[in-house]
Design a binder for these strands. Structure first.
Length: 424
RNA sequence: GCGAUCGUAGCUCAGCUGGUUAGAGCGCCGGUUUGUGGUACCGGAGGUCGUGGGUUCAAGCCCCAUCGGUCGCCCCA
């Protein structure tokens, strides 16, 4: 008989078990809790959209659109794309669902995203992000609130220590255009000394040369003009209000005049929370203001600002979430199984995490309980057995008070709880 | 798309300059011991050494190709 070949998992996808899944869930749960503190509504948007949603909004020349999207034709011949980011889909929903009536709208979501990239540390083809957006607010206060929200999230995840907020402004459209022209002039003047990669960037996305890692580019990038000289008065005032707001909220940051964002629609505030603890993937949370996007997609002129954070990356940084330490219920002999199950129900109904092994003698089950890090063992015996019908034995590192509570609970409820089991 | 590196049991790995029947720990299965209770002992199953070619009397080990993992470039969360 031919051997059945098990299909392999798709490159860049993950299967998570135990601690890894717990870490992931803890990040999401913390986000969901903090997001409520800031009054962000939960939204859900589709995992796939018309290709045009992403192709138009992200910019045709970006890597994401030109080579990283999972795009396919459905059976009706429509071109669909698995979302490579959240913002474009949310902007589409804002327009098509009439959410303008709620502006300024504060929304949050999380879920899977897809990009066709070579996987490496902290990078996957199916990855997951937290996302927060404020749509319909042109005020710098919106930028500040999002940043303070992000900062609190990282603090509550316990990773603020190793993570730094880096901040920049790309100015308004006039500032950005003037700066961009100046940059191009600067780079063209040094064209002969640029790396091949940066020569290509010069045509597609000259801003990106600023954060090139190629040593040949560094002197040229470092001597390039900052945006500061090209900021309009309005843009400068806006940026000052953002930094002042952060200061008032006690959020530390560093200015990174070389920070640019890859996607075309960014204006004004651009920021990244970065760490050196994730190998080449330094960015843990990033975002900025995208005042032009919704208009670009055929909607009304709508200012907006938002950020996204990589759940996998955050999950790698946090301490392992505390393990659930169950009470193990062990019947002393096989005929006590039903009685043990009754005890289990009693514990669980009282909100006490408890488990039992499905096989093995009592001795073996004790070993299983230890391996699972049980907090204590509830031995279930025949009525009148020496040592008591129910006996709770605490294990190493237990919470004595909790064990005592269980002891009392079972003993006081014991008679009635097991009356109907036929086990007595 | 490019580069580096790795690929031996379910898992983590050992396997000397190529040389008999490929090993360990953990896990799994069975048993012994104990018997108001955890850390003991014995045994067993399980591997076409990623796959396909090649070199050689002989390949887990050398060469080529291919697939996959990991890390990096690009780009990004």
């Amino acid at each position: 008989m031919a051997k059945i070949e098990t299909p392999r998992p798709i490159r860049g996808t993950q299967d998570m078990l135990g601690e890894q899944a717990d870490r992931f869930a803890h990040v999401v749960a913390t986000f969901d809790r903090v997001r409520r503190l800031y009054g962000f509504q939960r939204i859900e948007v589709p995992v796939f959209e018309s290709t045009a949603v992403f192709a138009r909004s992200l910019g045709e020349s970006t890597d994401v659109v030109s080579k990283e999207m999972y795009t396919f034709e459905d059976r009706g011949g429509d071109s669909l794309t698995l979302r490579p980011e959240f913002t474009a889909g949310i902007a589409r929903a804002y327009i098509t669902e009439g959410w303008q009536q709620y502006a300024p709208l504060k929304v949050a979501t999380h879920g899977p995203l897809f990009r066709y990239e070579r996987p490496q540390k902290g990078r996957f083809r199916q990855f997951h992000q937290l996302d927060a957006e404020i749509i319909g607010a042109a005020e710098p206060g919106a930028d500040v609130e999002l940043l303070v929200f992000a900062d609190q999230l990282l603090k509550e995840l316990g990773i603020a220590e190793g993570v730094t907020l880096t901040l920049n402004t790309l100015g308004d459209a006039a500032s950005r255009d003037a700066w961009r022209d100046a940059l191009v002039r600067h780079f063209v003047a040094h064209k002969n000394d640029l790396s091949e990669d940066s020569l290509a960037r010069l045509d597609r996305n000259p801003l990106r040369i600023l954060d090139s890692k190629d040593p040949r580019d560094r002197p040229i990038a470092d001597s390039a003009p900052d945006i500061d000289a090209y900021l309009t008065d309005e843009a400068r005032a806006f940026f000052e209000k953002v930094t002042d707001g952060l200061k008032a909220a006690g959020v530390n940051h560093v200015r990174n005049a070389r920070l640019v964002r890859g996607l075309d629609y960014y204006r004004h505030t651009a920021f990244e929370f970065v760490t050196d603890r994730l190998g080449a993937q330094g960015t843990v949370l990033g975002g900025g203001r995208y005042d032009g996007l919704i208009e670009n997609m055929g909607g009304p002129v709508t200012p907006a600002v938002g950020w996204a954070a990589g759940i996998e990356r955050l999950a790698m940084l946090i301490d392992a979430p505390a393990q659930q330490r169950p009470i193990f219920v062990i019947p002393d002999a096989p005929h006590l199984t039903d009685k043990a199950n009754a005890a289990l129900s009693l514990l669980r109904n009282a909100g006490i995490a408890s488990e039992t092994a499905f096989r093995g003698n009592a001795k073996r089950q004790v070993e299983v309980a230890n391996k699972k890090g049980a907090q204590g063992i509830l031995f279930v015996r025949d009525a009148g057995a020496t040592g008591g019908e129910f006996y709770v034995r605490p294990l190493l590192g237990n919470d004595i008070e909790e064990v005592r509570r269980i002891h009392d609970l079972v003993r006081s409820a014991g008679i009635d709880a097991f009356a109907g089991t036929g086990a007595r």
